[in-house]
Nucleic acid binder design. Structure first.
Length: 813
DNA sequence: CGGGAACTGAT
DNA sequence: CATCAGTTCCC
């Protein structure tokens, strides 16, 4: 006969209870238990039929199990042990009511001692007479008492073992006893031990749970900051895992959220950066899963969805706009261009809004008028829009809104007094929605129906129309002579304020389509308008000005043109970025230079933070190119290198350190005088960050430049601050911070400069002479760049022989 | 049965 | 002594 476990207890999710919590909290469920079908631990005696006794007790989760001080409590439990009878037919035993009672730390030794005594008593009752003595109490009853030395031995053993017992995990040990010839259950079968049961309340076994995330989508290139709220975790033992499964449910990709223990806030929140997706160039959003994972036991939380989006930038939208099919001029012929006779009473948009020639060769037919309203829809809302409106209605509208009909006609001198057409019952009107995106402009086509029948009278509308037609044809002629498109544009200058459905003005569109000459012509024409500033600085639906679009597309010429026309670089887009922010983010030093020199800008405004709480220095430090030049420009324009970001109080130097970017960090320190001791909201200096991330090279740089290795998160005088050494991610880092020099361990990188490293003396002298000869130093500066030593140029600039110093440094590095 | 607060020990 | 993580108790 042998004993076998047919249902193991569930390993996780069960909570041990203290005595004070009472005995009734439900029993350990079985491993396969679920909500609908509950199971419980169960064992079976095989190869035997008849009565049997089964004893269950708790043991440790070790290779050689010891008795555990926790107690089993429940229906058939006594003294921490559960005893049941089974048989004679059904030889299985299930345990539906096994609770685990948590011994307090204080009592571990005492309880353990009791366990050992009970065990030895049990043993002696079987083996008869082993370490006990028989005494009688006052009433003469037999008491079994341990000899003093045995008691002592057990006590010592209990005390010493108490320390090493893990109170957060137990296993069930089942022992079956079969009856002997006397019917006493003394025949012991081999004990069997269950899977481990972890206390769900123990910090290192608690259920992992993601409660909330501040965002669940990010770009495929990763690096997006996410704030995750969770149930209690341990900061050194937790990961944020991103994973993706294929159709078959196989795990095909895994990435880890990027954070250090210092980013775990009080056990309940993690601030991390998303990992890069396996394919940075996805075209469609990809859904993946995020979960918490405990490093020590690989337990995971339930997964939450996360979506990787195609690397989206403002450029994305611009690209889309660029991909639209190119218009063709014949698209604009319209239906009325042949001069077809309109039918009375049906004055629709197809009656061409351009002056047409009559039989006498003068342009004086149905004309187009544009009304510039603050908000025309207030007056021409349905029922008037896109409809024929009678002259009496029209007159009423005109009269009531006369003061708003500012520039009543196209092609007329803007300074003319407001012109209100005199209307008769023979006039009709069609108000088109065209150009109404912004609700500011309507085209108003007024047609005198009588005209078509009986020829024109000397009507003011007609005389204006005639003027307009003449100017148009003259312009066209002048254009033919000069090829100067501005001849045509100037007649349409008022239309430059019209936006398309994306909110883009003609200036935006010209920049988007890289039409530099067009942009220049348009700007010249716009310059003649009184409201030129509002047109140049118009924003589209992303709140971008034409200048912003030019910066976004790295279009230096367009930037220069727009700035010349007085474009304002400080207008904010929907992310709170002004043009200077965008230039910094792009690392486009040339554009940045022009923006900074555009006019007298207010440093306070230039140096403000965007909606992500980042300033220009932050954005430039994060840029993937042109960083050094941009940082230099910012510095020389008095931007604040030590500005803290709004979200966490980090400076640009903190960011550079986080990115493990030696060059940028070096540049910030040596060329921009970044404060080495700048502290985040939590009090961390850049050295703290480097230490916690285990970035030895950066830490070496910081230390070499004078960072305080004893910087503390709390003010001087207080003893309780955290120093970089407290956060050191490795022993190597600790040594570094304690001033122990690391063994020189050169990285083998590209070998392309091996020739330079091996120059013989003569060649080297010649090279120095050549490069030093250029007085501005541009030659050896270029060499420094190529050797990736750009960050030290300040140090060697004043050297007598800069090239030589540079080469020396190169050898060393 | 789960949430959470009070208490305590370690640093 | 303050603070944080871990333990115990209460509801």
């Amino acid at each position: 006969p042998y004993l076998e476990i047919i249902e193991n207890p569930k390993s996780r999710g069960f909570r041990f209870r203290y005595t004070c919590e009472g005995p009734s909290h439900g029993g350990i469920p079985g491993g396969s238990s679920d909500k609908n079908k509950k199971t419980f631990p169960a064992v079976k005696i095989c190869n035997y039929q008849g009565y049997a006794r089964i004893v269950v007790q708790l043991v440790t989760n070790e290779e050689n199990p010891r008795l555990h001080p926790h107690s089993l409590v429940g229906k058939q439990c006594q003294n921490g042990i559960c005893t049941v009878q089974c048989g004679p037919k059904d030889m299985t035993a299930t345990f539906p009511n096994l609770g685990i009672q948590h011994v307090t730390k204080k009592n571990v030794a005492t309880i353990l001692e009791e366990r050992y005594i009970a065990a030895e008593m049990q043993l002696s009752s079987i083996n008869d007479g082993f370490p006990q003595e028989v005494q009688r109490n006052i009433k003469g009853e037999i008491l079994i008492v341990f000899r003093h030395e045995d008691r002592k031995r057990i006590s010592v053993k209990a005390t010493s073992e108490a320390k090493s017992i893990d109170l957060s995990v137990v296993r069930l040990m089942f022992i079956a006893y079969l009856p002997d010839s006397n019917g006493a259950f003394t025949i012991m079968l081999k004990p069997v031990i269950s899977d481990a049961i972890f206390d769900s309340k123990a910090p290192n076994a608690a259920t992992l749970k993601i409660c909330r995330m501040d965002c669940n989508a990010g770009s495929a290139s990763g690096g997006d900051e996410v704030y995750l709220l969770c149930d209690k975790v341990q900061k050194d033992d937790i990961q944020v895992v991103f994973s993706e499964e294929d159709m078959q449910g196989n795990n095909i990709w895994e990435g880890y959220g990027n954070f250090s223990p210092t980013d775990v806030h009080r056990q309940f929140a993690i601030v991390f950066r998303t990992p890069q997706y396996r394919d940075v160039d996805i075209k469609q959003p990809v859904n993946v899963q995020v979960q918490l994972r405990r490093k020590s036991d690989h337990e995971v939380s339930e997964a939450k969805p996360f979506t990787y989006l195609p690397n989206k930038s403002d450029l994305e939208l611009i690209d889309r706009k660029r991909r639209k099919p190119m218009p063709d001029f014949v698209d604009h012929l319209g239906n009325g261009n042949t001069g077809a006779e309109p039918t009375e009473g049906t004055y629709g948009p197809h009656y061409a809004p351009q002056a047409q020639q009559n039989k006498n060769g003068t342009g004086e037919l149905g004309s187009v008028f544009f009304l510039f309203y603050d908000n025309i829809t207030n007056h021409f809302n349905p029922p008037y829009l896109d409809k024929y409106v009678s002259s009496s209605t029209l007159t009423r509208i005109f009269k009531s809104n006369a003061y708003k009909c500012l520039h009543a006609t196209q092609g007329l001198n803007l300074n003319l007094p407001l012109y209100i057409p005199k209307l008769t019952k023979h006039h009709g009107i069609y108000i088109s929605r065209t150009g109404l995106c912004k609700g500011s402009i309507a085209s108003l086509w007024i047609v005198e129906s009588r005209y078509f029948k009986s020829g024109a009278k000397n009507n003011s509308i007609l005389s204006l129309t005639k003027k307009w037609a003449e100017r148009n044809s003259t312009a066209l002629h002048d254009y033919s002579i000069t090829g100067d498109v501005r001849m045509l544009l100037v007649l349409q200058r008022h239309l430059t304020s019209i936006r398309d459905h994306s909110g883009d003005s003609v200036l935006h569109v010209a920049v988007i389509h890289d039409q530099l000459e067009v942009l220049s012509s348009l700007l010249d024409v716009v310059a003649t308008l009184d409201n030129k500033q509002s047109i140049v600085d118009a924003i589209n639906k992303q709140k971008q000005t034409a200048l912003q679009v030019a910066v976004l597309t790295d279009n230096v010429e367009a930037v220069i043109d727009l700035i010349k026309m007085g474009a304002n670089p400080l207008i904010l887009d929907s992310y709170g970025n002004h043009s200077i922010h965008v230039a910094c983010r792009h690392g486009n030093a040339s554009i940045l230079y022009h923006l900074l020199n555009s006019k007298q800008l207010d440093i306070m405004q230039m140096d403000m933070k965007n909606h992500d709480g980042l300033g220009c220095f932050h954005l430039a430090a994060k840029a993937s190119q042109g960083t050094r030049q941009c940082l230099g420009l910012l510095k020389s324009n008095n931007f604040n290198v030590n500005m803290a970001d709004t979200k966490s109080g980090r400076t640009a130097l903190h960011l550079a350190v986080e990115m493990d970017n030696l060059v940028v960090a070096g540049c910030l320190i040596s060329e921009c005088d970044a404060d080495m001791e700048a502290a985040t909201y939590e009090g961390y200096t850049p050295l703290h960050v480097a230490a916690s991330l285990g970035l030895c090279e950066i830490a070496t740089l910081l230390l070499a430049c004078g960072a305080d290795p004893d910087a503390s998160t709390s003010p001087p005088g207080s003893e309780n601050g955290i120093t970089p050494a407290d956060l050191a991610a490795s022993d190597q880092m600790r040594d570094l911070l304690n001033g122990i020099k690391l063994p020189f361990n050169p990285k083998i990188t590209q070998n392309i400069f091996s020739d330079i490293a091996q120059l013989d003396e003569i060649l080297r002298l010649k090279l120095c002479k050549l490069l030093n000869a250029e007085r501005t130093g541009s030659d050896w500066l270029a060499l420094a760049e190529r050797l990736s030593l750009g960050s030290i140029v300040t140090f060697i600039r004043h050297s007598e022989n800069p090239t030589n110093t540079l080469l020396d440094n190169y050898m060393v590095s």
